[in-house]
Nucleic acid binder design. Structure first.
Lengths: 395, 395
DNA sequence: ATGAAAGCGCTAACAG
DNA sequence: CTGTTAGCGCTTTCAT
């Protein structure tokens, strides 16, 4: 959406229509008038003038004071006026004007963002910050700001500390990568108790009640990779599953990718042989050599799938000058881009980290401003990036 | 993004950052304060309180009247006050509050949308309307509305008539599919003369000066299709280019797809044999039979690319029970989805019509509200849709 | 419990 | 040419 493409900086003008949030039924926006095609004149006209708080006040025979109090459930309205007002709201299909409301309102909302620190070794989280910053820019006008808490993704202590800080703080929404299970749950519960919307991103905690998640469906992304690879290899081909992960990595997400990948072949092409190579200690000379050996010794190797660290696999392939395979992996970061461009990697599945963060923050601010519940899960498209569409890829 | 996914209705809360539009230099938004990671406390804090028109008035020793006039280039300000005001604007890094400005403003802006009528035979344009409607919803709060003019894409007369209607009308922006060259240019010139932003979509008129375009890069999409297909076929394979087009179709766009496709093979794999089959009179029993014959008689046929009408090609392949090929074509519409799901089509390149219209209208309203020029061309990502990511695809 | 009134930041009309 | 002022639709405070 709405991010950088070809050097253009696109910014969404705003607004929101779905502002029937205030405990009203779904708005019946009158269908556009649309004269038949054969009549040779076709337009859509919209001609409903916004009705406002004053209109409902008049319609309910009160002043605007009680109307506002009803709209915000602030009490202090007699039962019968309350009912009259609600009726008027419904009948006139009132839609609050967010512009006006935020203009006056003094309260500033704060969204806490709990995010691993990007490092040289793991630059992945850098793009998320860009998304947060962009969203922040857009919502600031509505008096919503973000407050980013970075933690060390290898240190549960640092995560715990940030969680404590957020809980001590008064924030109106939480957006977090739940790297450490118990602590994430603790923060989640805290939010649930305080009626604070909390949105997970990147990694899901699917077994928890009431979780709201934005990100990629890891299982389906693996399934997609498998479908793609299956189109590129002969039916009797062999596939190598080569994973370079770290001890502290996000294994839940990675496992789901693998599950999806294997499920595809189990379901549609069980005769395909799949060989697995995995390092749980990242990459090293030794491991690279082992991988090279496996590749050399695997006859008929046509496809390679990597749930993580595809750049390391690509490096091995390039060094040893292997050919005749298709390689697919994750994450569009400088290292992988390099190998995509020189043809060592053929496909990259993008998690669109910037977009993920951007959309997530906007969703959260929606939820805060309109006092609406967050949607349960919001899966981003599974993006396939190749050499020729790299330049159009939206982080 | 930002459309429907998995049944969620996402609406972007608004706002806009790029509001330094008013002839100011790029705004230097102060970098977020960011304590070092090792210091164990990492946050981004934004602490600039919005400065307003009153502040610059005070800073420039005038009242708000001239300030507003400078901001809107409405003249009637002496040279020296003007300069003092501009200096203050710059120094204080003023960013107008769109909420407040649109709240007050009485003017309603209208965007004219010139779009082919969707028909049973060509349902393609239906999704565009969805995008227009969604954008319309979001911009209505800013007093921007749309007015859709449908034309018959087989009738230049109907196009001309709509153009006349738009030119007779007073609109503040134009969003059109330039199906008929001369008439499109006529409208374009009209807009240029009247300083009305005009954005083309779906089809570009690349040879015209000052055109603004949103859509897919047709050439690159063909190039991508070729790259994809090249991964799926053996180096000595044969490819069929099978195009089912109509006399009145958008040949410019289609030709570019083909050019990009052929360019890829010319550049990277000239030994690949490419056979071309084309119908310029749509599909019929006879043509289907001819196509079937070509397919049967082409030895070693591994890949099929279709710049248009991939569903017809799929139908032939299915009926004749051909196998062992990869088929790639355009447009995610009900007919093609059917064949994608049953495995007859392997890849679809989506033009994301809904998103295209949505983003385009929002861009236009940006341009109108902020009095900024439209970006020259805004290319949407080239989306590859397969069976496994169909459900995540954003129209 | 309700009404009245001030004011958010900006636009636009009018008076000086 | 410049300053003043009345709202936009809503929130909030204060008086009834």
């Amino acid at each position: 959406m709405i991010l950088k493409r070809l050097g253009l900086h696109l910014v969404s003008v705003f607004t929101n229509l779905e502002i029937n949030g205030l405990n009203l039924k779904a708005s019946h926006h009158p269908k556009p008038e649309c004269i038949n095609f054969d009549k040779n004149l076709q337009r859509i006209k919209h001609k409903d003038k916004q009705i406002g708080i004053k209109d409902i006040a008049r319609h309910a025979n009160v002043s605007i004071g009680p109307v506002d109090r009803v709209l915000h459930n602030r009490g202090g309205v007699s039962q019968e006026t309350r009912e009259r007002i609600l009726k008027a709201i419904e009948e006139l299909n009132y839609q609050p004007n967010l512009l006006a409301s935020r203009l006056k309102s003094t309260k500033e909302y704060v969204v806490a963002v709990l995010l691993p620190q990007a490092t040289k070794e793991i630059p992945f989280w850098h793009d998320h910050i860009l998304g947060v910053e962009q969203a922040e820019k857009e919502i600031r006008q509505l008096e919503v700001t973000t407050k980013v808490f970075f933690f060390d993704q290898n240190s549960e202590d640092s995560f715990r500390e940030r969680v404590n800080e957020i809980m001590a703080d008064t924030v109106d929404g939480v957006f977090m990568v739940p790297v450490f299970y118990e602590e994430a749950i603790r923060l989640l519960r805290h939010c649930q108790k305080g009626q604070i919307p909390c949105l997970l991103f990147d990694t899901n905690l699917p077994d928890e009640k009431g979780v709201r998640y934005i990100g990629q469906n890891a299982y389906d992304s693996g399934y997609l990779a498998a479908e793609l690879l299956s189109y590129c290899i002969p039916p009797d081909g062999t596939i190598l599953l080569a994973n370079i992960v770290q001890e502290h990595d996000n294994h839940l997400q990675f496992t789901k990718r693998e599950e999806g990948f294997l499920a595809f072949f189990r379901e549609t092409s069980p005769q395909t042989e799949i060989v697995k190579f995995e390092s749980r200690r990242g990459i090293s000379e030794e491991i690279a050599q082992q991988l090279a050996d496996v590749i050399r010794q695997t006859p008929n190797l046509n496809g390679i799938f990597t749930i993580n660290g595809v750049q390391h696999v690509a490096q091995v392939l390039e060094q040893k000058a292997f050919t005749g395979y298709r390689l697919i992996g994750y994450d569009v970061i400088p290292e992988t881009i390099h190998y995509l461009e020189n043809g060592t990697i053929h496909f990259l599945i993008s998690q669109q980290p910037k977009m993920q963060a951007y959309e997530g923050i906007k969703l959260l601010s929606q939820s805060i401003l309109l006092k609406k519940d967050l949607p349960e899960s919001y899966y981003l498209p599974i993006d396939v990036v190749m050499k020729s569409n790299l330049k159009y890829h939206v982080k």
